[in-house]
Structures are given as C-alpha cells and as structure tokens.
Nucleic acid binder design. Structure first.
Lengths: 343, 343
DNA sequence: ATCTTCTTTTAAAACGTTTGCAATCAGCGT
DNA sequence: ACGCTGATTGCAAACGTTTTAAAAGAAGAT
C-alpha cells in the first residue's frame, strides 16, 4: 500500500514525522544515511506530499495564474497559444503549475484577476497585452501582489516588473532596411485598441524616419479594430487602392501583415515586386503564407519562459527594485520585401 | 483591516469560529439573522476563506486539470483554444478553476498527467484527442481518478465517462447530401496519427456508402501526418491531379478541408463548380476561406462547457455507471459544395 | 419552579505538513 | 563512573478550515 501521508511513511521507517519531513527536505541536521534511507523509501513507495497541507503552513501554493484576455471570435490566437505553452514550461521546470482563468460573460478580466489574487490560489500572476491605462497593473501594484507583465506601460516612471520585446527597435530596423532598398512611400497598418505596443512600435518607426531627415519620405497609417476582419480588409484595401499607394507596408503584427499580403494578391499586386510587406511576431502562419512573410521573431515562447522565471524570482526573493528585460527581436528575412518598384 | 482568517472575523462579530464557518456555508442550524449578520460582515470586510485550509480538511482542491497535448509547430491550435475557453467557463461557473499543465521536453504527456493526479492538485482531469490505444484512460481508470474524456475509444465496452461529437453521423449526412447532388466519385483526406475519431468518421462514411448500395460510388482515401504541411499538400495534390479525380472531397476536419480548397485553387479548380469540399469542426477560419467552407459545427466551446459540468458531477456525486453524451453536430451549409460537374 | 423539548451556539478534534525547541544518544576526556 | 560536547531525533505547536458531538439557552408543558 502506498503511503498517503507522512505519518504512514514515518511509521514504516520507524522514524518520527518531523525527521522524515526534514530528511525529504534534505536538511543537513539529519544523518546522511537516514536521509538516503528515507529518500529511497519515499521513491519506492511512491509517497507524494500533500499540497494543501504544505501550502497551509508555507503560505505558498506553487501556482502562478494567467487570466486569458478574451476578445474577439478567435478566443485563443496563436500568440496566446505559444505564450501559455512557454509559461507552463518555465513554471513546471521549477515545480510550479499554471492556473488558467477565463473571463466568463458576467466577469470582467479584472474581476477574474481579483478572484485569483484574493482566493490565495496563486502566488503570483502574469498579465499580458498591456493597455494604455491598465487597471490590472494598478490593482496588482497597489495590493503588492507579485506579478510580471508582458509589455510596458507608456510611462517609464511607474515601477513594476516587465519583459517586453523591443518593437521600437525592430520597426526602426525595418524602416532603415526598406529605405536602403529605395522605398520612400510607407504604410503602416495598426489597430484601434488602446494597447501600448502600438505606440511603442509606431513611435519607433516615426523616430527612425525623423532620424533619416529625408523630406521625401511619407508615412500613411491605416487603423482598424483588432478583431473586425471586415474593417481590417477595408482599411488595407483603402491603403492599397489609391493612385499614390505606398511601396512598403509594415503590419503592426503578423496577422495584419498577412491581411495586407492577401489583399494585395486579391487586387493583383505582386509581392515583393509591386509591394514590400513586413510584419512582427513571426507566428507560424507567416512562414507558409506565400511568398513567405519577412518579419521579426519575437520568440514568444522563449519570452514566456523567461517571464515564468522572473515571476518565480519575484515570488521567492521579493527583490526591492523592479525586474525589467527588453528583448531585441531578430529579423527573419523571407521573400515579402525587396527593392522599391521603379516609378 | 481586512480579516485574513475566520478567527479574526469571528472575534469582530463576537461569535465562535464554527458559528461563523457554518453561517457562511449557509447551514440551517444557524439562526437566520446570525447568518445575515455574518454574511454582511464578511462581504463588507472582504473576508476570503483560505483555500489551502479548506482543501486540507475537505480533500477537494477545487481544481480541474487539463494536460495540453502538444504536437506539431502550432502549439495550441484553434480547436484547443476554444476548448480551453469553454472548460474554464464551465468550471468557474461552479467555483472551480482550471490547471493547465504543459508537457515539457523531458516529460511525456502521461508523466505530466501523473504529476497532476498524484500531487493531489486536481480533483479531476479532462483528456482530449483520444488515441486508439490510450494510456491516459487506462491509467486514470485503473487508479479510479475522476475524469471525463472528449472523444471515444473504439471499444464501446470499456466503461468511462465521455462526451463526443457524432462524427459518424455527420459524415454519413455529408455523403447523403453529396450523393443527392449527383456525386459518385468521393475523396477523403485523413491523418495518419492513431486517433480514434478518424476511424469513427471514416466508418460512418463507409457505412453510409454501403447503405446506399450503389456500385458506381467510389471512395479514395488520402492520408498524411497531421502536422506535416508539406506531406498534407502533397497527398491532396495527388488526389486532385489524377484524371479521374473525385468530384467531392471530405476533410477529416476543417484544416484538411481548407488545405484541399487552397490546393484546388492553386491548380485552377473552381469550388464548388469543379469540386465540392466539406469539412468538420467549423473553426473560425472556415467562414473566411473563400468561398466559405461547408462543414459541421462541433460547437467545441459548448462541448467543453458540458465536459466541465460532467467532470464536476463525477467528482462530487461519484456516480456508479458511466456518464456518456453524444452530440449531433449541425450542418453549416456554406458555398463549398454544389451539384456534381457534368462528365 | 421544574422538567422537557427544541433551537442555537461552542468546544474539541481532525486534515498533513513544517519548524522552534527540547530530549536523547554516543563518544570522549577526565 | 561522571559530565561534557556535538550529532541526531522527537515533541508540540502552528497554519485555517470543517465537522462531530456536546453544551448552553429559550420556550413550553406540567
């Protein structure tokens, strides 16, 4: 019979409960050979400590929480899928598990987050898709609850733990590359939702243009709601169908760039001959969409792993300052960009 | 100061701990006005019971687990995304939460499942994508651990709790409809992975053909690995490029049907004029892919919700027999099917 | 007033673990 | 043989809740 409790295991070993407990925890004060004897017995008999009891006394549940930000019809997009996977991997590596909470119809994302925090089910949480005015960060900060954010607020003065990909840098790099290829008329397809990353990336692009100081460079911005496919196509179409259309279009993220490629194909433009397109994220579909989207690899899964590690650090070590980490995304040059067409 | 424990709350109310505990649980034996008084104080002061302590004494953690079946590059596909969302919704409705466990490189899915079960972190688990020989079901059954499966084993004699969509019925319906439209040469695109649903659906199709008893009906089956896009396209291409190609192709699920549509478009076939295509699942992309894929709605999210409810029933009521539920998927007639072309 | 009955509240044990502190034991010097 | 030291081990309390069983209190009957 497999021992369900420390008591049973101790009885079998003819030791007291505290001794066995300490032996399993590897305390030096327990004789080495006792430790070995206990460890072996535990392994052999398949003893597994009771999580609830351990949580009760230690105050740590061994769980990290993530609230699924549900918006639009495609509930978990490819970004979130990779993100969740990476988080899980990073956590499990250090003996922690992931609670996934979903917002139901009658509970806002903040309400779900509150539940997660206040029920004590999680030791810390991860928030993603940072909004311009983000009530989750405000709430968590105020409460002093351990968390790590994927993404930055616009105000760099507010202290909190975050990891972000340097979209500004990538968009500047995209511009410089396209400029070098002769492009002067640029387009940017962005979203209307108040997420901070749209500003960071767009500002990076604008800064690069300003740095260049070439007055012949133009930038036209098309905006559409993130999850309204119709509106997205419409916005892209408008951008493409004008007489003086851009010769290079940058999508705020891959899905938008892919829409540009689809729409361009539909109206008979050849990529990259007539139009260069660049995205951001390097989602799986980008490799397959003909002719292959040039984009920046945000290595979402790897970032999520690091976020998991950061969170565990925050939970365990409670560092004074803020942990921050800015990842440089790498250019993935595929076939959707090329020299500007002759006028 | 918000009371963190029952003791503090009881002290403030000048009541004993058990009274407050029972009052919050709504026991009849506590005077109604006491119950109200306690409830109000708890709400006002923001008291939240400690989950660990409750788990310790009740033996229930309030968690259900799901092991992410990771395969292929697109880690969480649209099916899983919807599934997870539905599960979360169904659970949270009754005060439970979802643990999402991911298999790391060095841990098989079964190992992760074991961890989940044996650590006592979950009261029950959900397994999906049932394999022909499914070690997870064997393990859980043998251990007597509460679980509900999404999908069936091939042997209907093995007792366990499941919910499934009636793929056999749907595929028969698809055949009957296409037959009525004049189609006689059929194709089926399927996968090589040993999942049970491929048999259930294919057998349903074969049974419908047999029932019809028309010797002029032919069925050609193309098989490719689930996650090898190249092989998939190759298999589809082979099916389409022969002289006597099928006039109607059924995809084992939408993604395969979409591949058929893409490939057909690529080699210049017009859908539905030259070729009818039908899928299964009704994933979001199916509505957008031109000209709109005719498919069966498996209402994954709704199913996942029901699975959550079934699991809670199994956990709480421990029913003797097996809970089973077979959902009839509804035909979603879009524009990818039509009359058979004239020979 | 006393006994009974019913309602309402409380005391105490239990869940399985960790941890501060005390107890035991062996070995050693004297 | 005695006390001392240092290495091991065990006792008891604690974590916050639920639950069994019993106590206290109130109301009604005699």
């Amino acid at each position: 019979m497999r021992p369900k409790t420390l008591k049973e295991l101790a009885a079998r070993l003819d030791l007291s409960i505290p001794t066995v407990s300490r032996a399993l925890a590897g305390h030096e004060q327990i004789a080495l050979k006792t430790r070995q004897r206990v460890a072996e017995a535990a392994r052999e008999l398949g003893y597994v400590p009771n999580t609830a009891a351990r949580t009760l006394v230690s105050g740590r549940s061994g769980f990290a929480g993530l609230v699924l930000p549900i918006r639009g019809p495609n509930l978990v997009d490819s970004f979130l899928g990779e993100f969740v996977t990476g988080l899980g991997e990073g956590l499990v590596q250090r003996g922690n598990d992931l609670i996934l909470a979903t917002a139901a119809e009658d509970h806002s994302e903040l309400a779900v987050l509150r539940h997660l925090v206040e029920s004590g089910r999680a030791d810390g949480v991860v928030v993603t898709r940072i909004a311009e005015v983000d009530e989750r960060i405000a709430y968590l900060g105020e409460r002093g609850f351990p968390f790590v954010a994927h993404g930055r607020l616009l105000d760099p003065e507010i202290p909190y733990n975050w990891l972000d990909t340097d979209g500004a840098h990538a968009f500047a790099e995209a511009f410089d590359m396209l400029y070098a290829l002769g492009h002067r008329r640029f387009g940017l397809v962005t979203i209307s939702e108040p997420m901070t990353f749209r500003h960071l990336r767009q500002d990076g692009l604008a800064a690069a243009i300003a740095r260049r100081g070439d007055p012949s460079v133009t930038l036209e911005v098309a905006t559409a709601p993130r999850f309204d496919r119709g509106a997205r196509i419409h916005a892209v179409h408008k951008l493409l169908s004008q007489s003086q259309r851009p010769t290079a279009i940058i999508g705020l993220f891959d899905e938008l760039a892919l829409t540009v490629m689809e729409e361009a194909a539909r109206i008979g433009l050849s990529i990259p001959r007539d139009l260069s397109v660049i995205g951001f994220d390097n989602i799986v579909a980008s490799a397959y969409a003909p002719p292959g989207l040039t984009t920046f690899d945000a290595s979402i899964r790897q970032c999520a792993r690091e976020i998991a590690e950061m969170l565990l650090t925050v939970i365990i070590e409670k560092p004074k300052g803020s942990l921050t980490r800015l990842i440089k995304p790498a250019l993935v040059a595929r076939a959707s960009h090329g020299p500007a067409p002759r006028t």
